[in-house]
């Protein structure tokens, strides 16, 4: 445990010296600040923030995560020559990456919100949910990034796979859902579409947000089915469970690979 904390501390120190994490925080600060300055309508701010949470965070987490792992290669090899458990090292590396990324999102976004608290009327539940969603996107895509990096020695291949996995989760998966729903449109497909969207962390987070924001468009039969499921406690538990599973499973496969790996 002591060693783990030490590794995390070193990682944080290392990352804070890297300019990327500062750029990342500044990006969120400027984005959130400009959204609040130019948009009087809070629900539009929330929609733009949602787009960022669902597109930028997964992208940065996967790509930055993979690069970070590859760049830490020499450090890892050096550390492994010490009497340290491999899983501890991996865990330390992971926390040392995911924690600052999640924090810079939360800090960067929330400072302008705190300045504009007076202009916000309602929508706090969505905002809090957006923070939770952003946190989960970070840890999920960091574990996916580490999984990819442990599987591939080749830097270029790893980076390509990382980019592709981001594209798969954010666009290709949705294209497949749309294709499937179009083929099956003569059947009652509401339940299938719920199940399909629960299997993708980005879709799941997006659905939970739009159920609150675009409520008037979703008031038909379809919307009622979605509302009924995600509004129930079972739906909430299953959603959160799905997000946790997405974070945990790639992480453990990553640890297993890392432990067996021949450096």
């Amino acid at each position: 445990m002591k060693i783990l904390l030490k590794i995390i501390k070193y990682q944080l120190h290392d990352l804070s010296r890297s300019k990327w994490i500062i750029i990342y925080t500044t990006f969120f600060f400027l984005l959130s600040y400009s959204l609040f300055t130019f948009n009087k309508d809070f629900s539009r701010v929330l929609i733009s923030l949602m787009n960022v949470v669902l597109i930028i965070i997964p992208l940065v987490s996967t790509i930055f995560g993979t690069i970070h792992y590859y760049n830490s290669k020499e450090y890892i090899v050096f550390m492994l020559s010490q009497p340290i458990k491999r899983s501890t090292l991996f865990f330390g590396l992971y926390i040392g990456l995911a924690l600052p990324l999640a924090l810079s999102f939360v800090v960067g976004t929330s400072i302008p919100i705190l300045f504009n608290l007076g202009n916000i009327h309602g929508g706090f539940d969505v905002l809090i949910f957006l923070f939770i969603a952003g946190f989960f996107q970070t840890i999920i895509f960091c574990s996916i990034a580490f999984l990819i990096a442990t599987l591939n020695e080749n830097k270029m291949l790893g980076l390509g796979l990382a980019t592709f996995s981001w594209l798969a989760f954010s666009a290709i998966y949705d294209a497949l859902i749309l294709f499937l729903l179009q083929i099956l449109q003569d059947y009652p497909i509401e339940k299938i579409s719920i199940i399909l969207s629960m299997l993708n962390p980005i879709d799941l987070a997006r659905l939970l947000v739009i159920l609150k924001l675009d409520i008037s468009a979703l008031m038909g039969y379809t919307g009622a089915v979605f509302q009924k499921f995600f509004g129930s406690s079972l739906g909430t538990i299953l959603s959160i469970l799905s997000l946790i599973v997405w974070a945990v499973i790639p992480f453990f496969i990553g640890i297993r690979n890392f432990s067996k790996k021949d450096f």
Binding site: A171, L181, Q182, L218
Partner: peptide
């Protein structure tokens, strides 16, 4: 147009792919 014909596709509302 798609949702007018096939309502359950509303589940993809505001998704990155749909914007594309």
């Amino acid at each position: 147009v798609i949702t007018e014909r096939n309502r359950p596709t509303l589940i993809l509302l505001r998704s990155f792919f749909v914007e594309l």
